[in-house]
């Protein structure tokens, strides 16, 4: 798997994404960003498993988890996570 690295205003986001038939089946995200509540990162990851490995789908999926989990991440947006994931998928 290729590492996708993207720097948001709030920090660096590293991601590794594995796919099968265009579907995300393995994903890890790490970095020096801030995200509250911290445990919600695992929810973002959980929700992305099984999603189509397409920019729009990924972004929508992350936005939905942000809303559901009431996530705040100063300087980092769902688009930043999407960007890091897309770089891993390149």
């Amino acid at each position: 798997m290729k590492q996708g690295i993207h720097k948001s205003k709030g920090g660096l986001i590293r991601s590794f994404v594995g796919t099968e038939n265009g579907i995300i089946d393995d994903i890890s995200i790490s970095g020096d960003f801030f995200l509250f509540p911290e445990e919600a990162l695992s929810k973002i990851i959980e929700e992305l498993k099984g999603a189509a490995a397409k920019r729009e789908e990924i972004q929508k999926n992350i936005e939905a988890t942000y809303k559901k989990e009431n996530i705040q991440s100063p300087g980092t947006t769902p688009s930043d996570f999407t960007e890091s994931i897309m770089k891993s998928l390149e």
Partner: peptide, 9 residues
């Protein structure tokens, strides 16, 4: 290290 960081990274 920060909560979200990979220690080996």
């Amino acid at each position: 290290i920060g909560y979200f960081q990979g220690i080996r990274d």
